[in-house]
Design a protein around this nucleic acid. Structure first.
Lengths: 143, 143
DNA sequence: TATTGTTATACTCTATAACTATA
DNA sequence: TATAGTTATAGAGTATAACAATA
């Protein structure tokens, strides 16, 4: 006599609270560099990828026109560059410049630093366990 | 011979990735209701509190003028209300209306539902453990 | 004088609509 | 005809600056 498992509401709430706190930290760090959360996401996604405008918009769930504006501003600041796509004459590739790559490294380091006090509320063994659980949850997630 | 514990960089990265995924879900849910992440935070904070404009701005790390605009739009939509503060003639209290309270309940339920597939990647025992670790990490956090 | 809040202004972010160029 | 991208426009979100009212 099995029943459909109820969603773990308390876990969902804890994830949402954790995420709001983490996002507030990332938002604050971004503000120091005049970067919005969307711009940080764009740069982060481009870390190990060269994408077309439409693909990039798809990753972020934004309209292509919105991406045009974001990329135009990022390009103006020298963080990304655009180049015509080799296969499709209509498409434009976007990728990080060296300055953009350095900035992403910096942001990641600052994010790690900012999270240290929160993480430090757990002992080393619990930290290890939390890391494993999160990584298992994220594995192969198509988000 | 002890050494200063290094910050757990992999855990920090997992928290940031989890948060970006969770925020994307919440952002999508908010969009269905024409609510930005900031507006959702405002409504969420007012869930169990009646706050003055400046206090509210402090919670979100925003300037008071920004909060004036957010609250003006929320008030126009009937989600919050303003009233003069009893003790300080300069201050204005903000609180949820009944419609605002209903909306927050709805948003929380939708958030729980949206997170179910992600949470479901872990077994019940792991879910329970993850919840405990997150709650222990969040306990008494002044964020 | 200092604090609380609003208004004025400017820029970023976002979507809808219209357009150009290529497939 | 459909798709990729940009430009035009409008509204929300944000900060800096200036202001009115109260402490």
């Amino acid at each position: 006599m099995s029943q459909t498992p109820l969603p773990n509401e308390q876990l969902a709430d804890a994830l949402m609270t954790t995420s709001f706190i983490t996002m507030a930290m990332i938002n604050r760090i971004g503000a120091e560099h005049d970067l919005s959360l969307s711009m940080i996401r764009v740069l982060g996604i481009l870390w190990d990828r060269r994408l077309r405008m439409t693909e990039l918009a798809g990753y972020l769930g934004l309209e292509k026109q919105t991406m045009s504006g974001l990329i135009a501003r990022a390009e103006k600041r020298g963080l990304v560059a655009r180049a015509p796509n080799a296969e499709d004459g209509r498409a434009t590739d976007v990728f990080l410049t060296d300055a953009g790559t350095e900035l992403v490294k910096r942001l990641q380091a600052q994010g790690q630093e900012a999270l240290t006090p929160l993480i430090g509320k757990l002992g080393e063994s619990d930290q290890q366990h939390l890391q494993e659980l999160l990584e298992r949850m994220l594995k192969d997630w198509k988000g």
